[in-house]
Design a protein around this nucleic acid. Structure first.
Length: 878
RNA sequence: GGGCGCAUAGCUCAGUUGGUUCAGAGCACUUGGUUUACACCCAAGGGGUCGGGGGUUCGAAUCCCUCUGCGCCCACCA
């Protein structure tokens, strides 16, 4: 088939993706081969592909494709998650646009809207992954709200409840007044905000004394139920046992003492508002204080706020400051920088709020997961290792997990209330089972499902995704099925360090609890993708390139290479489009290399030239050496280094040296033997590039010869390791220096490459002549003469102790040659001196290993020989 | 405030137990080169007191101390 001179990526990429899909190469079924499994970190079902996804999924695809070439049964399970908060927020916003309030809808009606939304926008991201070339087993695509996935979640909830690990608690939680839901600590972002510190005066009951308290939140005085002083603070000893009067609401509250109070901060007096501050709650519990919640769920004040009832907390803050001031309660205002918790999703300021929540006890569950990563014989490796510290920090300070969310979009908590109180409930997988339990608990056989009310909260999304590596193989509902037994534990997990605890740690926990085994062997933590100015890529900044446009412009292969060129595990990737350009350029280079080979006429009549024979032997060793390096990089998850090794092998060794060595003269045919080897070498090259550039390599593969679907590159075999001829490699390093020397002289003296030149060698060592045919070809020499004496009137250069001569027509510039030689002599003598200094140091000779001393001696000998050569040349010039 | 980590060429980064992988790579830069696969190219070249200071050692980018400047995580005193 005729190759086009230009590679048309867009058309080619679609063609081969369809081809791969058609022949079902991505699909995996358990068989006798060794499995290699990755479960995708499920992106938000309604999300779109961004740079982080591109990096992440490129890495996964490289690993999967390589495993496939290594003959493993590669299975990459794709899917999406329902992202409860984010999706619900979007649906609420959309309904609002249509003039619909969430609160006016029934649960079922809202869910209908949410599902409509999901079906409309859902899965776009998976289509985008196909553009990137991801070879996921699409037949296994999962969604965290699929019926079977939800069933697994509910089953696990019930199980944990029955084990006594899930409990209902009245706790201070992060309340998002906008989304009207609870957030986990991890979903709260602290921002520095300029606020004020208000100094308020409280009267003392039955005394003319007053005390002053500094607060950042004057509107919370309606919830004050005590004043606290430090027992060691002499300034306030006269207030012990007295009571204070809260301004405006005139509540009389006790003055308590606790060492928790920092005597240095503010005035040394603290107002205690147990309903609205975690520390105050602790104080309140300790001193049995009343808890007064002054807010509605949207953070407007309730009836405790008196005449402020119904107004928003921030409006009230402004107004109450004014009222306090007018009534002489405000002593002064200082500006104060404090950190305010905000919602990751809605950006609303978080309100600490006491509410009924469901919690999962973590301490015992976490133990095997901690051991698995940090124990003496770790079963799970983190790449890079530095994240083990972060992991340790999390696991050692683990807190109970608040798993309930005041949302509809998600799995509804399977707790069913009966009777009146909120304390009467049963937990069961279905309402029928719940009814049986309720009948038993109440001894009332007359109960019907109508008497049961299911908890309205949904579960945290992470409570579904922590089961992901198990539930995608149906390992919760059906624990001994063929898939789970074959694919679990999975091999590698590729994700960002920002969800190391959210997701990775919890999957490990769930793995040990539900499979008694780790969920994966290795965790590859990618960095964040940032722009050139190191800013995080975000929609707001508009610095995030459109993923699909990038693919269109630079090809999927180009973008994949661009992303991996400089992204060491765990390091942030400073993304620059020029990297994709480089990736695309690499593709063009390979394309053109094959065009060259493809264009050669074969002649059976000619013998293989000596130079080609040497070149093939040399490149085969070079390739094998690179192959070992690549294996080593992969084993350490150093994908950028693996790619760079391939890049240099192809660009420099293959295109730059090898093809030049074997290339026949212009319009000359190539011998059949050489061409056969070149094709075999090219095939091996394509195999190792394929994981990084799947489309281009598959395309060239099929231009090489007619191939059946069984012979597609994607399912071919990774090159086998062969012995390396190190001598050949070392010899060629020397030869390449000689060729560089010739090129340098040509450049210095403006001798065009097409001019054939003479060449002589004064060879002091008996170095071999294996590569002479190649030196002759690449240097465009008329031959190589071995001489026993320096040639006069020639340009010279030296490699090691050999000296090379290029005769120059006309006279050479003796002065400049002398100058060049003198400088070289000075440098070499200086070098010799430093080596000899070292060797004359007795302590060095006695203490350094023999190998090191020997190498210094070799350096000395080489330098001495070279000095002799240079001196001889100088003499002949003078 | 507590913890972890980083600092090597203009940029992004390798550099494993201290010594031939020791000062490197890619990109960028400079100079020269196009009828002969490829200017998305080829060749040649410049560029670093390894953040500063001190120490250990025959020998330090590498180990220790200290200072400086960054980054991340945790807790956040009203």
């Amino acid at each position: 088939m005729q190759m086009p001179s230009k590679y048309d990526a867009n058309q080619v990429e679609n063609k081969w993706y369809d081809y791969w899909m058609k022949h079902n190469y991505f699909h995996s079924e358990p068989d006798e081969r060794e499995p290699y499994t990755i479960v995708i970190p499920p992106p938000n079902v309604t999300g779109v592909l961004h740079m982080g996804h591109m990096l992440n999924n490129t890495i996964q695809d490289v690993l999967i494709r390589r495993a496939r070439l290594l003959g493993k049964n590669a299975c990459w399970v794709p899917g999406t998650d329902h992202a409860s908060i984010a999706t619900e927020a979007k649906v609420v916003a959309k309904l609002k646009e249509q003039g619909i309030n969430k609160s006016d809808l029934t649960r079922e009606e809202f869910l209908k809207h949410a599902w409509d939304w999901t079906h409309e926008y859902g899965g776009v991201i998976l289509q985008q992954l196909k553009k990137l070339g991801c070879s996921c087993d699409w037949d296994r695509t999962k969604f965290t709200l699929d019926d079977d996935m939800s069933e697994a979640v509910i089953k696990v909830f019930v199980d944990l409840y029955e084990k006594g690990l899930i409990y209902r608690g009245f706790r201070m939680v992060n309340w998002d007044p906008e989304a009207k839901t609870t957030l986990s600590d991890e979903e709260v972002i602290y921002e520095e905000r300029q606020g004020n510190l208000y100094y308020l005066q409280y009267k003392i009951d039955g005394s003319p004394d007053t005390l002053t308290i500094a607060t950042t939140r004057p509107e919370t005085i309606f919830g004050d139920t005590a004043i606290c002083i430090n027992p060691n603070d002499d300034r306030f000893s006269h207030l012990r046992g007295k009571k204070a009067i809260v301004p405006i609401c005139n509540r009389v509250v006790p003055i308590i003492e606790d060492e928790y109070v920092d005597m240095e901060f503010g005035t040394g007096c603290l107002k205690v508002t147990p309903a609205h501050d975690e520390n105050d709650k602790n104080l309140g519990d300790k001193h049995s204080l009343e808890v007064i919640d002054i807010f509605n769920e949207d953070a407007s004040l309730n009836s405790y706020g008196l005449h402020y009832e119904g107004k928003d907390r921030f409006v009230v803050r402004k107004e109450i400051v004014k009222e306090l001031e007018e009534n002489g309660f405000l002593i002064k205002t200082e500006s104060h920088l404090n950190k305010v918790g905000t919602s990751e999703r809605t950006k609303a300021v978080i309100e600490p709020r006491l509410s009924d929540q469901w919690f999962l006890k973590m301490e015992e569950l976490a133990k095997p997961a901690t051991q698995a990563v940090l124990g003496e014989n770790p079963e799970i490796n983190l790449y890079p290792k530095k994240f083990e510290n972060t992991y340790r920090h999390w696991m050692e300070n683990i807190r109970d997990w608040n798993i309930s969310r005041q949302l509809i979009w998600g799995q509804q908590i399977p707790a069913y209330y009966y009777g009146d109180g909120k304390d009467h409930f049963v937990v069961a997988e279905t309402i029928e089972q719940a009814l049986e339990k309720a009948k038993k608990a109440t001894n009332n056989q007359a109960l019907t499902t109508k008497d049961l009310r299911q908890d309205t909260d949904a579960l945290d999304t992470w409570f579904s995704s922590w089961l992901w590596p198990i539930s995608v193989f149906d390992g919760i509902r059906n624990p001994e099925n063929k898939d789970i037994n074959y694919y679990y534990p999975t091999n590698d997990l590729v994700t960002g360090p920002d969800i190391l605890f959210f997701w990775v740690a919890r999957m490990i926990i769930a793995g040990y609890e539900y499979k008694g085994e780790k969920p994966f062997n290795n965790v590859y933590l990618t960095g964040l993708v940032r722009d050139k100015q190191r800013r995080k890529m975000s929609k707001q900044l508009g610095n995030s390139p459109d993923a699909l446009k990038l693919i269109e412009e630079y090809s999927a292969d180009g973008v994949r290479v661009g992303l991996l060129l400089s992204s060491a595990a765990g390091n942030d990737l400073l993304f620059d489009e020029s990297l994709c350009q480089q990736g695309k350029g690499f593709g063009t280079k390979i394309w053109n290399a094959f065009r060259l080979v493809d264009g050669w006429e074969v002649s059976k009549a000619i013998d293989q030239p000596e130079s080609s024979k040497m070149a093939i032997a040399w490149y085969e060793s070079k390739f094998q050496k690179a192959l070992l390096e690549i294996e080593d990089h992969f084993s350490k998850y150093r994908l950028s280094d693996a790619l760079m090794t391939i890049y240099k092998l192809i660009f420099d060794d293959f295109c730059g040296w090898f093809l030049e060595m074997i290339k026949p003269g212009y319009q000359q045919p190539i011998d059949a033997k050489t061409l056969k080897s070149v094709i075999a070498i090219f095939e091996d090259n394509l195999k190792i590039i394929h994981p990084f550039m799947p489309f281009l390599t598959e395309d060239i593969w099929h231009y090489m010869k007619e191939r059946t679907p069984e012979e597609a590159l994607i399912i071919s075999k990774w090159p086998v390791a062969k012995p390396i001829n190190e001598t050949l490699i070392t010899e060629f390093e020397f030869v390449s220096e000689v060729i560089s020397g010739i090129r340098s002289i040509r450049k210095e003296k403006n001798i065009p490459f097409k001019d054939v030149i003479g060449f002589s060698v004064l060879n002091k060592e008996n170095s071999n002549t294996n590569f002479d045919s190649i030196i002759k070809k690449l240097g465009n020499l008329d031959g190589i003469n071995y001489v026993s004496e320096a040639i006069e009137g020639a340009l010279t250069f030296r490699v090691k102790s050999s000296e090379y001569f290029i005769p120059m027509a006309g006279s050479i510039d003796v002065d400049s040659e002398i100058k060049k030689l003198t400088e070289e002599l000075q440098y070499t003598e200086g070098f010799l001196k430093s080596v000899q200094n070292k060797l004359s140091n007795e302590r060095f000779v006695n203490n350094a290993p023999d190998q090191v001393v020997a190498s210094e001696k070799k350096k000395e000998a080489d330098a001495l020989a070279k000095i002799d050569t240079i001196k001889a040349s100088l003499d002949s010039l003078k």
